[in-house]
């Protein structure tokens, strides 16, 4: 079989596998990125709680929580996701006396907590970049920490970190390929299975490489468009100088909507 016959053979015989593999890869990347972002935001909210030193118990408890968060972030950023997947999947089997977790659920869990560790740091940077006056403005009208974060800080953090979050998503599309080690049937796993049937290692993986590239490149373009839309004039400091009269501001804002 020549090159094109192999490709044709892959497409005609294994298209449904490949589509499922792509589906699984996207599923675990999207869910992992979103859940990871939520983990990162929750950690960001917890980390910024200020506890008065005069309240000893609360102060020690807060320090302890901060320590646990630090341990989580360092461990999951400091070890390969492939190893994390094996430890968690087989660790459960070991501790439960031979039961195994559902592979798809395990995959979603592993990618989520792994991404969460990275997101926690991204969110931390995002919160640091917000002017302290934004917090004080909210607290001065009686908002508690949770309200301050939810209504004032997090929306601004989200806009600032959006490019990094998109970047994590793209990374996840590629890096979730390691989940084949626990038997999760994402795109890499499927490719491997096809190779076991057609013995065309090079061509089959080249085909898969092209799929991965189309996915990451296409999605990063789409995300870039979304970012541009969200970061439009309405949200960003472009007019800056102020001193516009009410009508021209109204005009400007209506045009954007």
């Amino acid at each position: 079989m020549n090159f094109f016959e192999v490709i044709e053979n892959i497409i005609t015989n294994y298209w449904s596998w490949i589509l499922k593999g792509i589906g699984m890869t996207l599923l675990v990347s999207i869910v992992g990125t979103i859940v990871g972002l939520i983990i990162g935001l929750v950690i960001g909210v917890i980390r910024t709680i200020s506890v008065d030193k005069s309240n000893k118990l609360a102060y020690v408890f807060k320090k302890f929580i901060n320590f646990l968060i630090g341990v989580y972030v360092e461990i999951f950023r400091g070890t390969p996701m492939m190893v994390q997947a094996m430890v968690i999947f087989w660790g459960y089997a070991y501790l439960s006396g031979g039961n195994t977790l559902d592979v798809t659920l395990s995959a979603l869990f592993i990618v989520s907590i792994n991404t969460g560790a990275y997101m926690a740091e991204i969110v931390r940077g995002g919160i640091i970049s917000i002017d302290k006056g934004q917090f004080e403005g909210a607290e001065a009208i009686g908002m508690n920490h949770f309200q301050t974060m939810l209504y004032v800080v997090i929306p601004q953090v989200m806009r600032n970190i959006l490019p990094s979050v998109c970047n994590e998503f793209i990374i996840n599309i590629k890096d979730t390929s390691v989940l084949n080690v626990i038997g999760f049937a994402e795109l890499f796993y499927v490719t491997n299975t096809i190779v076991l049937k057609n013995y065309q290692t090079f061509i089959t993986y080249l085909f898969t490489a092209v799929i991965y590239f189309v996915l990451t490149f296409g999605i990063s373009r789409i995300l870039l468009l979304i970012e541009k839309k969200l970061a439009g004039k309405k949200n960003y400091v472009v007019l800056g100088s102020g001193n516009m009269d009410a009508e021209s501001i109204a005009l400007e804002n209506n045009r954007e909507n």
């Binding site: 002017d131 006056g133 403005g137 001065a140 009686g142 908002m143 209504y151 004032v152």
Partner: peptide, 28 residues
């Protein structure tokens, strides 16, 4: 929180919420 609403503060640096329009700043 009610104490904070009763003792309001106006800052040198305004500290308006950047993610909200003027009306939302005054209603939130």
């Amino acid at each position: 929180p009610l104490f904070r609403t009763k003792v309001g503060m106006v800052f040198q640096s305004f500290n308006l919420f950047n993610n909200m329009d003027v009306l939302k700043n005054c209603t939130i």
